[in-house]
C-alpha cells in the first residue's frame, strides 16, 4: 500500500516516465478511464442506489427522498443535499474522526458541482421537477456517498455512482387529499405502488485531470495521485456545458494549460457519459431479470 511505505525513487521515476510516453503502469493511455462496473438497487430501503467499482476504488451512492416545504423565497423549487462519508474499511486512518477531512472535502466538491447557484439555477437536476404542490410541498433528495475502498479518483467515482443511483431512483406518486388553498397545510398520501423516475439528462459527471510532471492524466490511481503536482476536477454534463470546477494542489497552472485541461475533460466526458449510460442500463436489465 502506498500510504504505508511511500514510493521509492525508482517507482516515482517509473510512474512519471510512463506518463510522459503515454503508457501508464496498467497499460492505459493518458486519457483512458479504467473499466468500471455498476450494480443498481443494492439498498432496497433507499429510493435509488448504486455501487460502482472503478479498479480498486469501490463506492456506494444512495438517494433518499423525503417530502418537505420548499426553500424560502423559491416556492417552485425542490431541494438537494449531498453528503459523503469515508468508511474505515477503506483505510485504517479513516477510523474515528480520521476520515472527516477527506469526507468534507469530497462533499463540498460535489456540492459545488451539483447544487447550482443560490437561485437554484444550474443545479444537476431541474429543481422545478421536484415540486409537488407549489409553495407547500416538494421533494428533498438526500444523496449519500460511502467510500468503501480507495484506489484514487474518488471524486469521479462518486459522481458516476450518484448519477447511477439517481437513474435507479423512483419517486412515489403523491396524491393530495386536501389543502389546496394557500392558507391551509397540505394533506397527502403516498402511493407506494407507482413510481416516477427522475430526469437525469442534466446530471453532470466529474472528470479529474491530474498533472504529473509536464502531462496530465485522467482517472489517476492512488500511486499516481501521490505524485501529482496539481489536479483540476471539471463537472461536465451531456450537452458539454461545464457545471463546476475545482482545482487542488499547490502548483500554479498557466491559464493556457488550464483551458487545455478543460477541453480535454470535455472530450473525455462525452465518451464517459455514453459508457456510463450503457453500464446503467445493463445493470438495470440485470436487476430486472433477477
Amino acid at each position: 500500500m502506498v500510504v504505508g511505505l511511500g514510493l521509492s525513487s525508482a517507482e516515482k521515476s517509473y510512474i512519471a516516465g510512463g506518463i510522459a510516453v503515454d503508457l501508464r503502469g496498467d497499460g492505459r493511455g493518458r486519457h483512458h478511464f479504467r473499466d468500471f462496473s455498476i450494480d443498481t438497487s443494492i439498498i432496497p430501503q433507499a429510493n435509488g442506489s448504486a455501487r460502482l467499482r472503478l479498479g480498486g476504488t469501490d463506492v456506494i451512492a444512495s438517494v433518499k427522498a423525503e417530502l418537505c416545504a420548499p426553500p424560502p423565497g423559491r416556492p417552485h423549487h425542490g431541494k438537494l443535499e449531498i453528503n459523503v462519508e469515508c468508511s474505515p474499511t477503506a483505510a485504517p486512518e479513516f477510523e474515528g474522526r480520521g476520515g472527516e477531512e477527506l469526507s468534507m472535502d469530497l462533499s463540498r466538491a460535489l456540492q459545488r458541482s451539483f447544487l447550482g447557484g443560490a437561485s437554484g439555477a444550474g443545479a444537476a437536476i431541474d429543481l422545478a421537477s421536484l415540486v409537488v404542490l407549489e409553495g407547500k410541498l416538494c421533494w428533498m433528495l438526500y444523496f449519500d456517498g460511502l467510500v468503501l475502498s480507495s484506489d484514487g479518483n474518488l471524486l469521479d467515482a462518486l459522481s458516476i455512482a450518484m448519477k447511477a443511483a439517481l437513474s435507479n431512483c423512483g419517486l412515489p406518486k403523491v396524491e393530495i387529499t386536501s389543502g389546496t388553498n394557500p392558507e391551509d397545510d397540505a394533506d397527502f398520501e403516498l402511493n407506494e405502488e407507482e413510481f416516477t423516475p427522475v430526469d437525469t439528462s442534466r446530471f453532470p459527471v466529474i472528470v479529474t485531470l491530474t498533472k504529473v510532471g509536464k502531462h496530465y492524466i485522467v482517472d489517476a490511481t492512488a500511486e499516481e495521485e501521490s505524485q501529482m503536482t496539481a489536479a483540476v476536477s471539471v463537472a461536465v454534463n451531456k450537452k458539454g456545458s461545464i457545471c463546476g470546477l475545482t482545482k487542488r494542489g499547490g502548483t500554479g497552472l498557466d491559464p493556457s494549460v488550464l483551458l487545455d485541461m478543460i477541453s480535454v475533460a470535455k472530450r473525455v466526458s462525452q465518451t464517459l457519459i455514453t459508457s456510463i449510460d450503457a453500464e446503467i442500463s445493463a445493470a438495470e436489465s440485470r436487476h430486472d431479470d433477477q
Binding site: 430501503q45 433507499a46 456506494i60 444512495s62 423525503e66 468508511s87 474505515p88 438526500y142 460511502l146
Partner: peptide
C-alpha cells in the same frame, strides 16, 4: 474494533455522529 452505520442503512435517513 470500530462499528459504523451508513446514513442510508436505516429506514429513515439518519446522520449518526461517530
Amino acid at each position: 474494533c470500530e462499528y459504523s452505520m451508513a446514513t442510508f442503512s436505516t429506514g429513515d435517513r439518519r446522520r449518526r455522529g461517530k
